[in-house]
């Protein structure tokens, strides 16, 4: 077992982790403000992937620039979904959210299949084949760009939440919904906004997914979403630093499992990990007791 392979796995893990982090952060943001979990979150990643591929094929823009278009589009779509589907059932029980997400999964997956067809597709990155020497090994330039883009998006989100008035209002709503209402924050606006931003983060993940040359079809969103969900369980519901740490660990664990046990185990290992953690700590690694 030489060090080179270990480093390689580590890099794959971080790269995969970037996509999970974006998804998990979005889920966490939505959970923090609205206290709902959207199991259809991966479908937004998938829409982002299709938007990216379509814009790329039509205009030939640098796919990394398309990330802005797909994020903007998904803010809109997310706001509509929140308004039409989730707002009417807010506060009617957690099982309802899960069931509603299933309806959304059906609609979005097959809506995309109607528009774009259900074959596997892929897009070639402009940096395909270019590698950068990092220490002992050659890393594809794409991986580095993806890590930089992810970091930039997370920094942007951090500044938005900490420095802007809307961001502060959003954090206030997340800490105490009733209190936020009392001081005059329009919490329903925060709901729409956080759902939209969460979806935009998923769209960014979708763009990165496509750009890195991974194949996609209308049904590919569920598995990354479920993993993102597992990550926020591990990292603690509502905790964005937890999502980042969890996402990286998860990406690395999964790629090690795929390397050492074989590719079939890639998805299962993550769930075994999740179940083990939940057996020991029913509220997640860093989760608080209760809700």
């Amino acid at each position: 077992m030489d060090l080179g392979i270990l480093l390689q796995i580590l890099f794959w893990g971080i790269y995969a982790g970037c996509i999970y982090i974006l998804l998990a952060t979005g889920l966490n943001l939505i959970f923090g403000v609205m206290k709902i979990v959207n199991f259809a979150h991966g479908e937004f990643l998938m829409i982002g992937a299709y938007i990216t591929a379509t814009v790329f094929l039509l205009t030939g823009l640098n796919p990394y620039a398309i990330i802005l278009i797909s994020m903007l589009a998904l803010i809109g779509i997310g706001a509509v979904v929140e308004r039409l589907c989730f707002r009417p059932i807010l506060g009617t029980g957690k099982l309802n959210e899960i069931f509603l997400s299933i309806g959304l999964i059906y609609i979005i997956q097959n809506g995309v299949a109607v528009i774009w067809g259900d074959e596997w597709q892929s897009v070639q990155s402009p940096y395909e084949g270019i590698t950068v020497p990092v220490g002992a090994l050659n890393v594809p330039l794409d991986y580095i760009v993806i890590m930089v883009v992810t970091t930039a998006i997370l920094c942007g989100l951090y500044l938005f939440l900490k420095r802007t008035k809307t961001g502060r209002e959003m954090r206030a709503t997340s800490q105490n919904r009733k209190g936020a209402m009392l001081v005059g924050i329009n919490v329903e606006r925060m709901d729409v906004l956080s759902f939209g931003i969460g979806c935009a983060l998923a769209a960014a993940a979708g763009t990165l997914w496509v750009v890195s040359g991974q194949i996609f079809n209308p049904y590919m969103g569920s598995i990354p979403a479920v993993k993102a969900f597992a990550i926020i369980i591990l990292g603690g519901l509502g905790s964005i630093p937890g999502a980042i740490a969890g996402g990286l660990l998860y990406g690395i664990a999964e790629n090690s499992a795929a390397y050492f046990l074989g590719g079939v185990w890639k998805d299962a290992v993550s769930f075994i990990l999740l179940i083990v953690v939940l057996v020991i700590r029913p509220t997640g690694l860093f989760g608080e007791s209760g809700e």
Binding site: I98, V264, W265, D267, A268, S270, I275, L278, T283
Partner: peptide, 23 residues
């Protein structure tokens, strides 16, 4: 486990069983 966690564990369990079946 609470609702969401249970949903996740059961969802993951089906995938684990499928993986075991094919490996």
């Amino acid at each position: 486990l609470k609702e969401w966690f249970l949903a996740m564990v059961t969802f993951g369990f089906a995938i684990i069983v499928q993986t075991l079946t094919v490996s």
